[in-house]
């Protein structure tokens, strides 16, 4: 075989590997669409998007997604409320205050938080955090949004901290020196100069963290309950979109039934939510990279 032909074949094979990623996207969209279309032939899309009752597995069926969305947003909000302040504080501390040596030790240690499987975090939430929180909130239900939300927040700390730190690191040193030159303390430099200058990168990190929290499944499936309720009370059992998909999948729902199709309707809702967030972050990122190059 001639060298040239061989080279061409290799390039084609490699191009195919890259093409698999496109096929994956097409596959996801098609599968979700096809099943969801089947679902929406039986359930009106308006009822789906505005209904506050989600009981597809009961005798008296309702298909309003709002309870799952409220559950998802509630746990996500709690997670971000934990991860953002802690993650950002870590980022500023590591970037401005910590000695290089400490940075080198701490960064991989923080990554460990992201390495632990989520099913393990679910166990923590259910078995440790909820009983612990009950000491302070006696009314807290055994399944609730608060505990998995907090645990999820701990899990995504490294997302926020490492992406935010990258953003802070990308701020030109001249800005930093200008601030010090005017007699600013580290604290003033960090929060009046660096954080604003790195704001777009920090926003990206937060959006990605939100997207991650929305898609997180096992922690909420284990510790938040299986009670779709349209509520923002963090102490009662709720259900998220992801947990619902797992709930149906672990049971034996026959293909073709409307209950089977609900997981794809829920899936497409989840996909659209995260897709929008990911693209916003991609868009901000590509704009802000231009700024410093």
């Amino acid at each position: 075989m001639s060298r040239k032909l061989k080279e061409q074949i290799i390039e084609k094979v490699l191009a195919f590997c890259a093409l698999v990623t496109i096929l994956t996207t097409i596959g996801i969209v098609l599968i979700l669409l096809v099943e969801a279309v089947g679902f929406f032939q039986e359930v009106s899309i308006v009822d789906f998007l505005t209904g506050t009752e989600w009981t597809p597995l009961f005798a008296d069926k309702s298909y309003g997604i709002l309870p799952l969305i409220s559950g998802t947003l509630l746990t996500t909000f709690i997670a971000i409320a934990v991860a953002l302040p802690i993650g950002l504080t870590i980022a500023v501390y590591l970037n401005e205050y910590a000695p290089r040596k400490l940075q080198k030790v701490v960064k991989p240690l923080l990554e460990v938080l992201a390495v632990v499987p989520t099913v393990v975090y679910g166990f923590f939430a259910l078995m440790i955090v909820t009983p612990f929180l009950k000491i302070f909130i006696p009314d807290l239900s055994g399944f609730n949004a608060l505990s998995p939300g907090i645990v999820m927040g701990i899990m995504i700390i490294p997302f926020v901290s490492s992406l935010s730190e990258d953003a802070l690191d990308a701020v030109p040193d001249s800005l930093r020196q200008a601030s010090y030159g005017m007699g600013s303390t580290k604290f003033q430099t960090a929060f009046r100069v660096l954080v604003p200058a790195a704001s777009s990168g920090i926003v990206v990190s937060v959006i990605l963290a939100i997207s991650r929290a929305i898609g997180e499944t096992m922690i909420v499936a284990i510790a938040a309950g299986q009670n779709p309720q349209f509520t923002f009370d963090p102490t009662v059992p709720i259900e998220t979109i992801t947990a619902y998909i797992v709930q149906v999948s672990s049971g034996d729902v026959p293909q073709g039934t409307i209950a089977y199709k609900t997981i794809f309707a829920a899936g497409i809702t989840l996909f659209v939510l995260t897709f929008i967030l990911n693209n916003i972050s991609y868009w901000i990122k590509s704009r802000y990279q231009e700024k410093y190059e």
Binding site: T24, I28, S249, L270, T274
Partner: peptide, 16 residues
């Protein structure tokens, strides 16, 4: 984008 798709969605892809 794929890197940001929740893992449970991949499950639905695999199922389908």
């Amino acid at each position: 984008n794929l890197a940001g798709v929740p893992s449970v969605i991949y499950g639905l892809l695999g199922l389908g």
